[in-house]
Simulated assay, not measured.
Amino acid sequence: MSFKNFPMVPRVVYGRGSAEQIEEIAEPIRKNGYPIIYFADHCFENKSLAHHIPVKRNDKIIFIDTSEEPKTSYVDKIRDDLKEEFGKISGIIGYGGGSVMDMTKAVSLMMTNPGSSADYQGWDLVKNEGVYHAGVPTLSGTGAEVSRTCVLTGPVRKLGMNSDFTPFNQVILDPNLTQGAPKDQAFFTGMDCYIHCIESLNGTFLNAFSKSYGEKALELCKKNYLEKAEWDDESNEDLMMASWHGGMSIAYSQVGVAHALSYGLSYILGIKHGVGNCIAFDQIEEYYPEGVHDFKKMVDKFQVEIPKNVCAHLSDNEMNKMVQVALNLVPLWENALGKNWKEKINENTLRELYEKM
C-alpha cells in the first residue's frame, strides 16, 4: 500500500496584529534585488489595509479583481506581465479571501513552470517548485490558506492545480483582518468551511487524520453559527481556526456532492464558489440530511438569502456542459458515494438536481 505524503505549510504566525510582522517575515526572502510582489483583493484599493502593506524599493502591489472566480487566463496574464516588467521576483504575498489565495499560489507556480496554467489543472502535473509565496487571509472559511490546490476556471474545466508545490511557504493568521467583512460574503465563505466538514466527515475516504480536524472545525462552526446568540470578536478567531482545520480535514480525504455541483455552477454561470456551495447544499438533503437541516437553520438565523432558480433559463447545451463539469470530478463522487458511485449518479440525476437550483 502507498500512503499519500502530504505537504503542510511549514511556517504559520497566528494572533491579533500578527500581520504587522509581514515586513520582518518578508525581508529575508529577498534575492538579488528582485522585488516582492503583493497581491491584494481589489476591494482594499485606497483602503487602510493597502496602506499597511510594507512596499519597499522596487516592490509592487497588484490589486486582484475578485469579481469573478480565478481564471487560467488571468493567472497567465499576471505571470507574463511580471516577467516582462521584472524578469524574476523574490516572491508573492497575497492578502484576501480564497480567490486571492488561489491566485497567489497559481502565479507563484507559473513563474517557474512553462506553458499555460490550464496545462496544470489536475493532480500532480506541476513539475517545478514555484517562487516563495505567503498567504494572509482576510476572510475565513475556504481553507485555501492550508490546501495543496488552487482552483481555477480554464477553457474546458474548473479544476485545481493540485500539487505538492502548491501549499504556501508561510501563512499569517490575523483575526483582526477578518473583521468588518460584508455579512453575506462572510457567511458564504464560512459555509464553505462548514460544507467541507460535512462532506469530509460523511465521506468514504474518512480516516482518523481527517476526522480529528473535521470534527474540530465542525464544532467551531456550530458553536458560532448555531449556538451563540450573536457574532463577536471570539467568533472571528474561531472561524479562522475552523477554516484551517477544515482545510486540513480534506488533506487526507475529499469534499463531496455540493462541491462537485458548485464547480458546474461556477463554470457555466460564473457563480462564486461559496455561493455555489450554498445553492447546491440547500438542495441535497437526501445525501447529507443532518448537515442540510442545520444549514437551513443557519441561513434563517443569519437572514441570508440563497439564490434560487439560477438554472431556470439555461439552454440544453449549457445544462449538458454543467453536468459534465460536475460528473468529471471523480474523486469527489467516490468520496461521497463510494467506488460504485456511477450506479447512483448519472447525467439524468445531476440534471434533476440542477433543475431544483
Rank of each mutant, 00 (worst) to 15 (best):
T189C: 06
T189W: 03
G190K: 05
M191E: 08
M191D: 01
M191S: 04
M191K: 02
M191H: 10
M191G: 07
D192K: 09
D192V: 11
C193Y: 02
C193G: 08
Y194I: 03
Y194Q: 00
H196Q: 15
H196N: 08
H196P: 04
H196I: 03
I198K: 01
S200F: 04
S200P: 06
L201V: 09
L201R: 14
L201W: 09
N202E: 14
G203P: 01
G203T: 07
F205Q: 13
F205W: 08
F205L: 11
F205A: 02
F205M: 07
L206Q: 12
L206C: 05
L206E: 02
L206K: 11
N207W: 11
A208M: 12
F209Y: 13
F209T: 13
F209E: 02
S210G: 15
K211H: 10
S212W: 10
S212H: 12
S212Y: 06
S212D: 15
S212N: 12
S212I: 12
Y213C: 04
E215C: 08
K216E: 13
A217V: 00
A217H: 02
A217C: 04
L218H: 07
L218D: 01
E219S: 03
E219R: 08
E219I: 05
L220A: 05
C221A: 13
C221S: 13
K222C: 06
K222Q: 15
K222W: 10
K222V: 00
K223C: 07
N224F: 05
Y225Q: 00
L226I: 10
L226Q: 02
L226G: 04
L226V: 01
E227S: 09
E227D: 15
K228R: 13
K228F: 12
A229S: 14
A229F: 09
A229Q: 15
A229D: 15
E230A: 13
W231N: 03
W231S: 06
W231F: 15
D233T: 05
D233N: 04
S235E: 06
S235A: 15
N236T: 05
N236S: 06
E237D: 11
E237N: 03
E237L: 13
D238A: 10
D238C: 07
